[in-house]
Nucleic acid binder design. Structure first.
Length: 104
DNA sequence: AGTCTGACGGGAT
DNA sequence: TATCCCGCCAGAC
């Protein structure tokens, strides 16, 4: 059966899966869109558990300041920036302009 | 049940 | 714009 946690999990991943190519979103925004305002931390928790071969566009998820939530210079951060740049998303001083790229 | 942790957020300074 | 600080919430012990 589906527990409330399973349903929340599905709702959040579905929401992330819908972020368009070339666009980005934030943890808090995703939580709210999925129907769980205030659960930004939970969004990050789920992404952390995704397998390396996932098709979920985790790289399009940024924190509210428009920055990657990975440590500066880490492999994960570099991979995230690389993927975003492949989608024509500009990164200035380690930061993405949410006003320009944020999903509506 | 109490405490700690974290891919977070927002307001104050 | 950058720091600090505190609130938030599910999970792991």
């Amino acid at each position: 059966m589906q527990t409330s946690a399973d349903i929340r999990h599905q709702a959040i991943l579905n929401t992330i899966a819908q972020i368009p190519y070339g666009k980005v979103s934030t943890y808090g925004h995703i939580a709210a869109l999925a129907g769980y305002p205030g659960n930004a931390r939970y969004v990050g928790r789920l992404l952390k558990e995704l397998p390396n071969n996932t098709k979920i566009p985790w790289h399009r998820v940024l924190n509210s300041t428009g920055r990657s939530s990975f440590p500066v210079g880490s492999e994960k951060q570099l991979e995230q920036f690389q993927r975003l740049q492949e989608e024509q998303v500009m990164i200035l001083n380690g930061r993405i302009q949410l006003a320009t790229y944020k999903q509506e």
